[in-house]
Amino acid sequence: MGKCVCMIAEFRGGNFRRVSFEVASEGKRIADALGIGLRGVAVGSGVAGKAAELGQYGVERVLVRDDPALEHYLAEIYVPVVAEMIKKCDPAVVILPASVDGRDLGARLGARLDITLVQDVTQVVCEGGKVKARWPIFGGKCFAWSEWADGTLPIMSCRPNVMDCLPPDTSKRAEVELADIPIPESRSRVKAVDMDSSGKVELSEADIIVSGGRGMKEASNFALVEELAKAMGAAVGASRAAVDAGWRPHSDQVGQTGKVVTPALYVAVGISGAIQHLAGMGYSRYIVAINKDPEAPIFSRADYGIVEDLFKFVPAFTEEVKRLKSTCS
C-alpha cells in the first residue's frame, strides 16, 4: 500500500472551487479508514499562497506547482505535470473532482499512469483495507459498485455536491511543498476567457436550482424562472429542449449532455422529464415538479408535484416565497 491518499484540488480564478473541499473531506475519511495520511496536489497560477487552506479539511501536506502557464486548464500541460506530482506522493488512492475539467483530467491520468478510473463516484466504502466505489450506470438508472484488484492503484472522481464537506477547522494549515517539475510546451494556448460576470451561482455547486423547460414556450418567459430563482437564492437551469430552442445558453443545460447536478432542492418548471434530463438531476435531495400534464415523467421522480399551469402558479409561488422570507428576516 502507498503512503497516503492523494487528493487533486481544482484551483480557478484565484481560489479553490468548493468541490475541492468536498474531495478533501472524502479523502480524509478514506485516509482515516485506511490508517494513512492525506496529501494534496494543487496546480495553478497563484495557488501557492492559497494551498495551506486545504489543511482546514484534513490535508496534511500539499504538493504545489505554481506557474502563470497553469492559469487555465490545458490537458497538454496539466496531465504530465499532475502525473509526476502523483508519483512523488506515492499514493494508495487518488481522488479528484468529477467537474468538467476533472473528468477530462482523470481519464487522461488513468491512461498515462495505466491505472483504472471510476468516474462520477457518489459513495466510497473502505472494508478490510480495500476501497469500493459506487457510481451511476445506464444514464443513472442504476448503480454499480467497483473494487480494485490487489496491486492496483484506485483513482476516482467524485460527483460535485454529493460528498459531505467537513466543517472547516480554521486553526489548521497544510504544509506546503513546492514541486520543481518542468512545464511542457503546448501546441495550444488560451487567448481569452469569456467569463460570466453576472455573479450567478455555478450550477454544479448550487444548493438550489430552478430549471425551465419546453413548457416555458419562449425565451422571454424565463423571466418567471429567474425571478423565482432570485427569491429562493437559487441558480437557473434549463432542459435540453429549452437550450436547443435558443432560449438559454448551453452553460445552463442540465442533463446527460449538459451538467449533472445534485442540489439539495431542484425545482423543475415546465419540464416533462426526458430520461436524459432525469439522468442529470434525478439524484437531487428533493425534487419539486410544476407541470400541467399529470402524466409527465418528471412526476415519477418528484418528491412534490404540482399539476397546474405554470404561468398561474409560478408568479403566485414567487410572491409567497418573498413574503415568507420577509417575515423570517
Rank of each mutant, 00 (worst) to 15 (best):
N15F: 08
Q123W: 00
S186A: 14
V5A: 05
G27S: 11
G40C: 06
E218A: 07
R173P: 07
A52L: 04
R173F: 03
R103A: 12
T327Y: 13
P91N: 07
Q119L: 14
G44V: 11
D180P: 09
V100M: 14
S99A: 07
R240C: 13
V162L: 07
V201N: 09
F299T: 07
A144Y: 08
P297E: 09
A274S: 12
G273T: 06
G37H: 03
K87N: 15
S20H: 05
G102Q: 06
I183F: 01
Q253G: 09
T257W: 02
M232F: 09
Y283S: 15
D101R: 15
E227Y: 11
E177H: 02
I8T: 08
D244W: 15
V124K: 14
G237D: 03
N15D: 02
E76G: 15
K259C: 06
A92S: 13
A48S: 12
W135L: 12
A238H: 06
Q256T: 14
S284H: 03
I183W: 11
P136C: 03
I181W: 02
M156E: 08
P80W: 04
L278S: 13
D309R: 13
Y283L: 05
D196K: 09
K132L: 08
L96D: 12
K88H: 11
D67F: 03
V5H: 02
I86G: 00
S329P: 06
G151S: 07
V288T: 10
E295T: 06
L324N: 13
K292Q: 11
L178T: 09
A241P: 05
I290V: 15
A235G: 10
R103C: 04
E22Q: 15
N221S: 00
E60Y: 01
K191L: 13
S284L: 10
V47Y: 02
C158Q: 12
I290A: 14
R159S: 10
K325C: 12
V93R: 09
G270E: 14
V260N: 14
A235D: 14
R187I: 13
